[in-house]
Simulated assay, not measured.
Amino acid sequence: MAGVQTAVALREQGFSGAVTLLGAEPHQPYDRPPLSKAVLLGKADGSAFDVDFEALGVTLQVGREVTGVRPGDHALDTAEGAVPYDVLVVATGAEPIRLPGADAVPGVHVLRTLDDAERLRTVLSGQRDVVVVGAGWIGAEFATAAREAGCRVTVVEAAERPLVGALPAEVAAPMTAWYADAGVQLRTRARVERVEPGAVVLDDGTRLPAEAVVVGIGARPATRWLDGSGIDLGDHGEVVADASLRTSVPDVYAVGDCSSFPSRRYAERLMVHHWDNALQGPRTVAANIIGETPAVYDPVPYFWSEQFGRFVQYAGHHGAADATVWRGDPAGAAWSVCWLREGALVAVLAVGKPRDLAQGRKLIEAGTPLDPDRLADPARPLKSALAS
């Protein structure tokens, strides 16, 4: 998404120079969210972007992996030879974290690429015993698809609850019941000791039958190819970009899952591994490549997840919030949670309430104070909670 949208944004904003888009995978560039939904369940054969690269004057080279960059020479290294550049945009995304020692075991999978989804589609069609390691967003989405396909599913999570790194305990706790409601066995505080052919062995000796194992324990920026380049990387291996998405070396930008950026809105550096970030960031990159006045990237982060029959949306960043307001009963089908800082909305989670999300996103952007009592009334539109 980030690479394709950068090429598209450059043309939309009037860039007339040569644009080359390099991708390591052999496929036409494609959208990733459908991989854990329609593609995985065989409802779609792929999710290629509807972009006419030839008409845009963009040179697309798929199946060409970049192995290094030499900023001093303004050149990329590939197995097929060097590729010169005037300006480079790093948009290599993220790669799944692997389960130590499990890669050599047959039947162990991750879900990140189109090839991953196609392999797992065969697994689901066999209605097998599946163990999912990790109760994060991708683990829940895969478990949802596996149950829809008729598989028997167990989700193993080392922490005490799902989404431990994404949401506060009191917000994620109601989501625990979603697993049982969907017929999924959720085992928390359970660590994987080892994976064997046909089984996952937990650290307490429990053996879980597993004709397939899907690992969803997180992702890391795909930046190892930048080692030795002089481009600054952060604590998580991400490219450290400035507010204009420039890196530490001249003529190199970074955008999407592979990078972090400073947010004035939230007064901290953010690393956002979500689709909307890869859609919005390229517009800032293109503007800075073309224009003389620096454009600043400071979005309200947004993502969504479809799991266990629920549409979950989140906008903002709740890390620095000083108050939490619930709208509705989390045991019900539709509810939301709002986070405030000094009376202003900084984040909203909406379950089955897209209107709350849409209105909340605008209120976060505006930064206007809200009345907590009016905000807590789920019968009121969220935008009606403006403080008087």
Rank of each mutant, 00 (worst) to 15 (best):
P71T: 09
G72F: 01
G72I: 08
D73C: 07
A75M: 00
A75P: 04
L76N: 02
D77F: 02
T78W: 08
A79P: 14
A79H: 13
E80D: 15
G81W: 09
V83W: 03
P84L: 04
P84V: 02
Y85G: 06
D86N: 06
L88A: 07
L88T: 06
L88G: 09
V90R: 00
A91V: 03
A91G: 08
G93W: 00
P96E: 07
I97V: 15
R98Y: 08
L99F: 03
P100N: 07
P100C: 09
G101I: 02
A102V: 11
A102P: 03
A104Q: 11
A104Y: 01
V105H: 04
V105R: 05
V105W: 03
V108H: 01
V108S: 01
V108E: 04
V108N: 02
V108P: 01
V108C: 07
H109D: 10
L111R: 03
R112I: 08
T113L: 12
T113A: 11
T113V: 11
T113D: 06
L114C: 13
L114R: 13
D116E: 08
D116P: 13
A117D: 02
L120M: 14
L120K: 06
R121N: 11
R121Y: 08
T122R: 15
T122V: 15
V123K: 05
V123F: 04
V123H: 04
V123D: 07
L124Q: 07
L124F: 02
S125M: 13
S125C: 11
S125L: 12
G126A: 15
G126C: 11
Q127K: 15
Q127T: 13
R128K: 09
D129V: 04
V130H: 00
V130T: 08
V130G: 02
V130M: 09
V132D: 13
V132K: 00
V133A: 08
V133E: 06
G134A: 05
G134C: 05
A135T: 10
A135V: 07
G136E: 13
G136R: 01
